[in-house]
């Protein structure tokens, strides 16, 4: 099976000298295409940093990152930006949408920035899939938190990216709404063959994934396939996340 993302000995150090923090230490991992991967770990373990480095939002201090066949090393900000808008999708925890734009405009924003044509049929399908077919003209302020996250997911999918990254995409939602969004993510992977990497600290969220990677102190310390919420929670307790 080919890998959508590959990290080799990736380290990230913030700051210099005495006050420097090693957020990632020699992380090596491959994310297979068409899988749903969850990244778990205690707060401050380097989950977000991992995601930023894997998605070309941040540049690692050492090591190499490949997206498909493309090595990210040595790319400048413009090249990285173009790579992001064409080949990567994002769902963040909050501040996902531009409040001045409608649902449709938010979804097609990456295409607009790339100057690319909008594939109407694909747009309608995504809108339908995320259950927002009737709300295409609404503004973010008129939507609930769950609906906003679904718009963000639709935007992440609109460019048919190689990977969709999510940084705690359900972190700000209540349990019920979170479950809807997670089901949707699962569906995207199963039905469309989309690769999804999601950072979370919620064992229930992690249980929707095919694989869970455990991060502690900047290192991948464990991995689990076919996780259940209980198993993940138990592993996290051993990592000292909830002392």
């Amino acid at each position: 099976m080919t890998e959508a993302v590959r990290l080799d000995a990736v380290s990230k150090v913030f700051g210099r000298g005495q006050g420097s923090v090693a957020a990632l230490r020699e992380v090596t991992v491959g994310i297979p295409r068409g899988t749903f991967t969850a990244v778990m770990g205690p707060s401050g373990s380097g989950k977000s940093t991992f995601l930023h480095c894997a998605a070309g939002l941040d540049v690692p201090s050492s090591g190499s990152v490949r997206l498909g066949d493309t090595a990210l090393a040595g790319m400048d900000e413009n090249a990285l930006t173009k790579l992001r808008r064409e080949r990567v999708g994002f769902v963040f925890q909050a501040f996902n949408l531009v409040s001045a734009l409608t649902v449709t405009e938010n979804i097609t924003l990456p295409l607009m920035l790339a100057g690319a044509r909008v594939d109407r049929a694909w747009l309608d399908e995504i809108l339908h899939r995320v259950g927002l077919a009737g709300r295409a003209g609404h503004r973010p302020a008129q939507l609930s938190g769950g609906q906003q996250q679904r718009v963000a997911l639709a935007r992440a999918l609109v460019t048919r990216p190689e990977v969709v990254f999510g940084d705690e995409p359900t972190g700000a939602l209540d349990t019920m709404t979170a479950r809807d969004v997670l089901t949707l993510l699962r569906e995207v992977v199963s039905a469309l063959g989309q690769t999804v990497v999601m950072v979370t600290h919620d064992p229930v969220a992690a249980s929707y994934a095919d694989t869970v990677l455990f991060l502690a102190d900047g290192r991948i310390v464990d991995a689990m396939t076919g996780p259940s919420a209980d198993m993940v929670a138990e592993r996290m307790t051993r990592l000292g996340a909830w002392n």
Binding site: R85, V98, L109, L113
Partner: peptide, 16 residues
């Protein structure tokens, strides 16, 4: 700030 950071993240070059 956050809005501009967002559009940068989803694909706006610094120039854009």
């Amino acid at each position: 700030r956050s809005e501009i950071a967002l559009i940068r993240a989803v694909g706006a070059t610094p120039r854009q």
